[in-house]
Write a protein that binds this DNA or RNA. Sequence first.
DNA 1: AGAATTTATTGGAACGTTCTAAACATTGCG
DNA 2: CGCAATGTTTAGAACGTTCCAATAAATTCT
Lengths: 350, 350
Amino acid sequence: MASRAKATILDIAREAGVSKSTVSLVLQGSGLIRPETALKVRKAIEDVGYVYNRGAANLRKAHSNVIGMVINDLTNPFFAELAVSMERVFQAAGIVPFIANTAENPVRQEEVLKSLLEQGVAGLIVSPARGTTPGAFRRIEAAGVPVVFAMRRLPESRIPAIAPDNHRGAYLATQHLIGKGHRRLAFFGGSSDLVVYHDRLGGFIEACEALGIPAANRTIVEGETSRRGGMACLETALAAAEPPTAALCFNDAVAFGVMLALRKRGLEAGADFAVVGFDDVAEAEHYMPALTSVAVDTPGLGERAAHVMLKMIQSRTTRAEDHIGAVSLVVRESCGPSRSAHGTGMGDAA
Amino acid sequence: MASRAKATILDIAREAGVSKSTVSLVLQGSGLIRPETALKVRKAIEDVGYVYNRGAANLRKAHSNVIGMVINDLTNPFFAELAVSMERVFQAAGIVPFIANTAENPVRQEEVLKSLLEQGVAGLIVSPARGTTPGAFRRIEAAGVPVVFAMRRLPESRIPAIAPDNHRGAYLATQHLIGKGHRRLAFFGGSSDLVVYHDRLGGFIEACEALGIPAANRTIVEGETSRRGGMACLETALAAAEPPTAALCFNDAVAFGVMLALRKRGLEAGADFAVVGFDDVAEAEHYMPALTSVAVDTPGLGERAAHVMLKMIQSRTTRAEDHIGAVSLVVRESCGPSRSAHGTGMGDAA
DNA sequence: AGAATTTATTGGAACGTTCTAAACATTGCG
DNA sequence: CGCAATGTTTAGAACGTTCCAATAAATTCT
């Protein structure tokens, strides 16, 4: 059934009785062409079932209209949401975003980046995988392709990053826990090969210091950033002689895991143990008990990242400013009854 | 900082003191080249920071190594999981999958498909958006690009589809509800412009007929396939004079919504109202109460779809067999206490 | 009417690869 | 030593587009 060979611009030129240049012009929507001619050409295109060969075009144009989004974990709703929010603005700008998943694997990431580059993307938005080596983007920078990091960044990289104010978010959350009367606190999940981890842990520690929680009363447990990881963290922490009574979790997935593990032990989040998450994914609100979490405005950050990228492409630069997004603590039930009727906004201390 | 102009095969030929043909051969890993020459070339490539231009290559080769995966809703964990399972097998096969999201929007889908085609993909795996018109794939078929549908299919299309046995899944679930003593049943969520909808609803109805639930005792409420949709469905159904006591939901998202709405009314899923979901996403197990759901083996289906695609590409055909995956009911808590200690497998009736 | 201007159309040389066929080098053999 | 066989390398013609410069046709101006 498939037509002999792929139809080209020449075939449709013949079909329409014009030159290939004319067809090309029509394809680009040039106003130079007489409307009737354009119509003839468009009809031929339809009849022949022609499909434009963007590869050939890019060969000449040097400017492609596709950008790549490289995501570390698409199965995490948080990153999925990030991806679709970026996608929206690219679509509106007439450029086509292709999404690739690295499954938190630096080797896979390397392959994916190589492919995307070879494909001739105009830009790259990346949420780097755990353990990405600092040199991983050297070649890409050298190639002059604009890159922006979203949500995560690399240590000592000059690549612009769009991320929430992790330090402040963690500070707010910790403050909230201390305000609830907790004196033995934990920080659960994440691993130190992530810059975000240090940001969030830093906020936690700073709040502890500022509000009089000595190091001896702080438990820090690294772990997978997943439900399973959260469950493991709680088990480890509760095994201690003087276990914590509240935890700030690296992200919501970890928090869900912690709550799960609590339930398994017959304990209740909120009543017996306070837990706060990070990211405020959609699910947090519907969990039982509803999860107090640090909201980071994922779609907002995604859109911002996309806009920065568009600007970079347009101005042919490879540099841009970092952008740090505002965060807010949204308090729900997982830290016990709220003092104010139903909390929202910036927590309960100035 | 960016190098003057993109380096080409010619630049590196000059650098290495060989001809462009030699460089090309090295790039393709041809054994014809003397190892020392190959080494020289590879060094030049490294030095110059050359990036392969796959567009130019495809122009000549007619064979690309990228395939497109077009997904209707990446924010739904079910489809995200589908995507990554397919991705895994493609990666292993050395072909690069690009993911695009259509956000359940046929117009967007049209654009995405066009882009992917223009990019010269070797094949397309699609989970079509709601309301996709039957003709949407005509052009693609005409272009001779292999397509397979995953999870969803189109009415009267010759494109091969990989999907679970929706009819049987719904039948099993309904049977389970009736076995629990329910006599007024509902089917919640989904809309009739989806083939899956008819499959699942069909299974529901067939089970009702077979097991003596008259049409008067069946409530069917269409709705969004999301949490919000599920909440709405429950509200509508409970407003009736003789409301149902149990519901089979179009998918797990709807089921979660139903449980949420129940809670809001002070009712408890399992005790006051039985609900079963469809798809058995990871979350189902951890919900409160844990959701009874029809498991469809998402990764298995994804892998199968990917393999079918690989085979089609390899054998240069555009046709393939449909594949219907086995399903099983995994019973948890959302339909009340199980008779057998902790249910799993195929439900409780032959 | 002819020149000047504007409006539509076109030929042909790129773009960066691959691939066929041919050239060049080396070796073994009689 | 000449020739065949083998092993390496290369020139040059594609591939399907874009875009510059040129041409052709229609219009306006003087």
